[in-house]
Write a protein that binds this DNA or RNA. Structure first.
Length: 642
RNA sequence: GCUGGUGUAGCACAGUCGGUAGUGCAGCUGAUUCGUAAUCAGCAGGUCGUGUGUUCAAGUCACAUCACCAGCUCCA
């Protein structure tokens, strides 16, 4: 048989392990963790008995990292079992930035206990324990885990499909049910840290018991671990929840309540800039603007279905269960309000597509643990829109929505951090969804065709759809790597019928339109949060709350500074003049910390020659004529330069 | 909502074995009028998240509660 390591091909007469083959090829080094054989990732101890394409994987590869972290999670579990034998094991996978293991234990894993677990893990690494894979027939596997009292593992075995191997990994006295693959030995995990212990529900279901999830991260070397931990510290500095407060963009007040941030003047400047820009852009693209009430009687939400699906999440004014009295609720979405604009009169096919846009404030009574800075709040404002369409217009209009969203996120600089998710229904979750399987197949089929035609690179999210239809969600990662939806485009095949939104077609028949629900730049609060993190508060000029700060060297030059300020503000630039009687170094320091894009230092020289000394955020300086700087700032502002 | 952690001045933090609260920055007042990241001096600011308990005595110990943070669950 022939074993190929890229162009390096070796012939063997009898079966060999990957390790032996690689060694024969002179490719084994300390860095090699596992291998990909004909596309499948597996351990170095795997025996090869036929021709194979082999790629050796190191920590540099994603799959190599996953294997490394997966074995790290087994080391964690082994340490926990040594220290707390009563603990029951559940699952312990590798994730994007490390690994975790979920335990069911009476002992609460406090930070002190995590330190003890780390010490035990260190021992296990030192012991250089080999990992051995073996399989058992189903009955024996169940019996084995039952005898160990690992009830969760017994449940997991039941989930392995018939015909698949039920594999185990043994490392010393510790054995875990696991599909693998794994490292050759525990010795490779030289540097690791248990980062936190939190709760997590068994099977991810909040009705189930809450387990203890220990998170960790590990690396082949101490230096890499330290670099990673430093990187996390740096990320913390960009956290919008901290930076946004320091930069006076927003604040929160206990007596106002959770999830109700107060947006400070600098934050409002940014939001207003975003809003004016996107409203104008939508108008250019044929949107009609609407303004609809912030609340409605429960009757409206009953028609749409939101009353049944989301009553708990609504702020209700009055007793929702008293049918003898009027009952209102603050709006959690815009759809049924904006539909009334369409329903205002009888519509012809000629009027479609009708594109409606609204800067819409919504209210959702999120559970107390859900709020986070500006990312998840109870009152927020969204660049909302609904398009009412004939079936033949669906693809073109969907494309238009996607183009607008991409233009918007691209201009903001966020698109490069975004991924696309095609959010589909889960036919098993009947409580959540309305409509027939046929309707869902149709809507999802259409959406798939559109996305494929547009060449959108998407992941599929099962059970992520809205109750009325599938969505394309544009997901953006925050500074900690946690993902949130920033923009959504949804195809709705149900609500038009509920609201009786017909149009008269060319053939004089009353027909139901499709509706697209969409945002262009999402929710202003969330987008602002992501912008703060993206730019670490150093916003592009067009978004900066203060675009130019004028710093007179001393009070003697305040008059000239005022003239400079007026020239800029007349040109539409947001400018602030620092008239305080402070040393210039102090003023520069403060301006620098506020991350203003440009400082203009003006003193005797500049006043005499009508010039400004321009200090950019990066510290570079340049003297130029005042008029030239005004032109430069105006240009940069208009072009939304990043 | 669940699990864990954290709450001391506007912000960042110190406060030992339980003995009635401190530093820096910010703020205010005065002096300084200055050339590219911090001028000097003085003043003021706190029911130590809140409540109950233990104690001669609680920022410190116990219990409860609230808020914040992380994760889970949820997100029309």
């Amino acid at each position: 048989m022939v074993i190929s390591f890229a162009e390096n091909k070796l012939t063997f007469d009898s079966p060999v392990t990957v390790y032996e083959a690689a060694q024969a090829a002179g490719l084994i080094s300390r860095d090699v963790l596992c291998a990909r054989i004909n596309g499948e990732v597996c351990e170095l101890t795997r025996t090869l008995d036929a021709d194979a394409e082999v790629e050796l994987l190191t920590f540099a590869s994603t799959d190599g990292k996953k294997v490394f972290w997966h074995t790290s999670s087994h080391i964690l579990a082994q340490a926990v079992k040594r220290l707390f034998p009563e603990t029951k094991l559940t699952i312990g996978p590798a994730v994007d930035n490390g690994f975790y293991y979920d335990f069911d234990s009476e002992v609460s894993f406090t930070p002190e206990i995590l330190t003890k677990i780390e010490a035990e893990m260190k021992k296990i690494v030192k012991e250089n324990i080999k990992l051995e894979r073996y399989t058992l027939p189903r009955e024996e596997a169940v019996k084995f885990m039952q005898e160990k009292g690992e009830t969760y593992k017994v449940a997991l075995i039941a989930r392995v499909p018939e015909g698949d191997d039920i594999s185990f990994y043994r490392q010393g006295e510790f054995t875990d049910l696991c599909a693998g693959p794994h490292l050759f030995s525990t010795a490779a995990v030289k540097a690791f840290k248990l980062t936190q212990c939190t709760g997590a529900y068994w099977e991810g279901d909040s009705k189930n018991k809450m387990l203890q999830r220990v998170y960790g991260v590990s690396f082949p070397t101490k230096d890499e671990l330290n670099a990673h931990l430093t990187m996390l510290e740096e990320a913390k500095k960009r956290d919008h929840n901290k930076l946004g407060r320091e930069l006076e963009i927003f604040t929160t007040v206990d007596s106002i309540g959770q999830g109700l941030p107060v947006i400070l003047p600098k934050g409002v400047t940014i939001m207003q800039t975003l809003q004016r820009w996107i409203e104008d852009e939508e108008t250019k693209r044929g949107y009609l603007r609407t303004k609809t009430p912030l609340m409605a009687k429960r009757d409206l939400y009953r028609i749409s279905g939101h009353w049944d699906h989301y009553l708990d999440g609504m702020f209700v004014l009055g007793d929702p269960y008293d049918e003898t009295k009027e009952c209102f609720a603050l709006r959690p979405m815009t759809c049924p309000f904006q539909y009334q604009v369409y329903l205002n009169k009888k519509r012809s096919y000629r009027e479609l597509p009708m594109r409606l846009g609204e800067t819409s404030t919504l209210f959702r009574n999120e559970d107390s643990g859900e709020m986070h800075g500006l990312i998840r709040v109870r009152q927020f404002t969204i660049s909302e829109g609904h398009l009412v369409l004939r079936p033949d217009q669906l693809e073109e209009e969907f494309k238009g929505c996607l183009e607008l969203a991409k233009y918007c996120l691209g201009t903001l600089g966020l698109l490069e951090d975004c991924t696309f998710r095609f959010s589909q229904w889960d036919p098993k979750n009947t409580a959540k969804y309305e409509g027939t399987p046929e309707q869902w197949d149709e809507a999802q089929g259409i959406m798939k065709t559109i996305l494929d035609n547009l060449g959108v690179d998407y992941e599929i999210g099962i059970d992520e759809a809205a109750f009325y239809g599938p969505k394309l969600d544009i997901q953006c990662k925050n500074v900690y790597g946690k993902e949130d939806t920033i923009v959504t485009i949804q195809i709705d095949m149900l609500l038009a019928e509920k609201f009786g939104m017909y149009y008269t077609d060319r053939d004089n028949q009353q027909k139901l339109p499709y509706i697209i629900h969409r945002t262009s730049m999402g929710c202003y609060e969330r987008t602002l949060a992501l912008l703060i993190e993206k730019y670490a508060g150093a916003f592009p000029l067009w978004l900066a709350p203060v675009q130019v700060q004028v710093l007179p060297i001393s009070g003697t030059y305040n008059d000239y500074a005022e003239k400079v300020g007026k020239a800029l503000s007349d040109a539409g630039i947001r400018v602030d003049v620092d008239y305080r009687n402070e040393k210039i170094g102090f003023k520069i320091r403060e301006a620098q910390l506020s991350k203003v894009p440009y400082m203009l230092i003006v003193g005797e020289k500049e006043a005499e020659s009508d010039e400004v000394s321009v200090r950019a955020r990066n510290g570079s300086t340049e003297t130029m004529a005042l008029a030239d700087f005004v032109a430069k700032a105006v240009k940069e502002n208009a072009e939304k330069t990043r």
